[in-house]
Design a protein around this nucleic acid. Sequence first.
DNA 1: CTGAAAGCGCTAACAC
DNA 2: GTGTTAGCGCTTTCAG
Lengths: 340, 340
Amino acid sequence: MVSSSDVAAAAGLSQSTVSRAFRNLDNVAPDTRARILEVAERLGYLPNEAARHLLRRATGQIAVVIEDFINPTYGILVAELGKEISRYGYRMLIVMSDLADGELTPDMLSYLSMSDGVVFASAASRESTLNQSFMKYGKPAIFVLREINDPTAWSVQVDNRQGMGLLIEHLTGLGHRRIAMVGASDTLGSVNERTDSFVQVMREHGLAAGGCDIVYGSPTYEDGFELTKRILERPEAARPTAILAIDDITACGAVDAVLSQGLRVPDDIAVVGFDDVPIAQWPSYALTTVHIPYEELAHSAVDALHKRIASSSDTQLDVQRLIHPVNLVVRRSTTNLPST
Amino acid sequence: MVSSSDVAAAAGLSQSTVSRAFRNLDNVAPDTRARILEVAERLGYLPNEAARHLLRRATGQIAVVIEDFINPTYGILVAELGKEISRYGYRMLIVMSDLADGELTPDMLSYLSMSDGVVFASAASRESTLNQSFMKYGKPAIFVLREINDPTAWSVQVDNRQGMGLLIEHLTGLGHRRIAMVGASDTLGSVNERTDSFVQVMREHGLAAGGCDIVYGSPTYEDGFELTKRILERPEAARPTAILAIDDITACGAVDAVLSQGLRVPDDIAVVGFDDVPIAQWPSYALTTVHIPYEELAHSAVDALHKRIASSSDTQLDVQRLIHPVNLVVRRSTTNLPST
DNA sequence: CTGAAAGCGCTAACAC
DNA sequence: GTGTTAGCGCTTTCAG
């Protein structure tokens, strides 16, 4: 391993001058710098970040915690986070984990120790005390697309309530009165919030008679398919005319289940999703859904985290809970109009 | 920031004892260790990895370079790599970059400096000298699903030639004689290899008369759709009866293009993909495709990289170019048989 | 503009 | 079993 002293020796200069040259400080003669860079290049010198960060008391890294990459939502989110993280001069660590609640795993601790802050987008129950755990180790965390009750937790969210309102208004506007939610959950944050909002909005529209039609499950293609198939086995009078899936992937499963029963979308059953992932626009699905501003989410998450990392530990910043508005995208899964 | 000395002071012990306790060395009295852990827990102490790695001359991190997360292949690969990387005790850094050729960007150098090795799964031309660049900085690299000509580059590949053979044999077995490849490329590694193999295998089957039917493009849903649509605009006599897409996502685009023209899959046009991503099994597409052993790829890549990292720099390991076999998965996009 | 020296938080000898 | 000491490769005073 080539060190700055090696470069210094080879260039006949002191180690500190090499250090200065590499940080582009202005107190180095232009030709001195040139010579140093030339020698460094020849030797294959790379500044040792570990040593640098030892002094800085910072790692220059931000950890992103996600569950998996099966749901495309995470891929898009990670991609946008990646851009922002490097824009702010950090490197991105990825931890795949589904720790939902309290204690941190050894694996997670290893990542924590090498990051200045964490973006949390993995499973978290509403009662999660994860934020406390992060704070204990002095690492700021921000929850993205996860809702937890802890009032000290920073978060960047999407207005699930508004999105649910847009979807249900759209459906009722088309004449639908019996709407079933597929893939609901009352434990996981965010998915949980969508479930609650569904109940609320349905009630506001006077459509909750006999209890809302809620089918619990996980936000996966498989559950979308299976649960919808089961709904379609009901006697026709008890069947919904529209299916509102917890997210787009689940909605895709729902669409395929409808088709597999020889029924049509949207003529027999309308289907809506949530997230607006790329697949939602593919002609085979052409899902009416709620668009999420991924780029803005990533930006505000990293920006907030950066501010907390940069602020001296004595200045106490106010907790931020950002909620981004969403908008409806109408496609062929609810209407037969020429789609977008 | 809490350091091991703080813990030592609070516990009335020396710093080195704290260090020993945290590394589970056997020369620490059980109750001493217990007390240390208790104090550390209370103080929120986390061993400083930067300092640790400064001594070890290693970062404990492996960088994974990919282009994006739009194509699900990358998501699956990263997920599997993540598992392996942490199984081997490293942390995973993700760099999103499409540097295909020679020089490393400053961003890339920053990641390089904080990793012990790199898994390269981003765009690389066959003539890429990237491997040389990595070597220059003393960082072993391994190319996954990328083919570059550099004979000193380690790689883990999939047998594209074999896969192409399986697909074409399957199609000719079903009576297809005119097969078009959609999304071909002769610059990018891997995709390039699939293109070459297509030409070769078609020739072996005596189906290259008049030149192979190759439509160049990028491996995306959009190109799959557009290029296929254009093919279908040809006079019927010049139309292929089967479309072989460069990968599954492109194949999905092809399927939708066929359907959009009021034609049926596979009755009018058969479609095959490559990669076997989850979407390929969805009933809407039910793609006949080539399954790639993602888990094995990730395992052999990380294992090889780890061996190179662990081996002292003087022991020269032989270049490894692993090629994993693949297998055919037959679904409804080519046959009307009950599908898997 | 450049050099010398101290020290970041840890590990790894070496003492006792 | 535990403490002492000397660095790892940098950044950062402080001199000159």
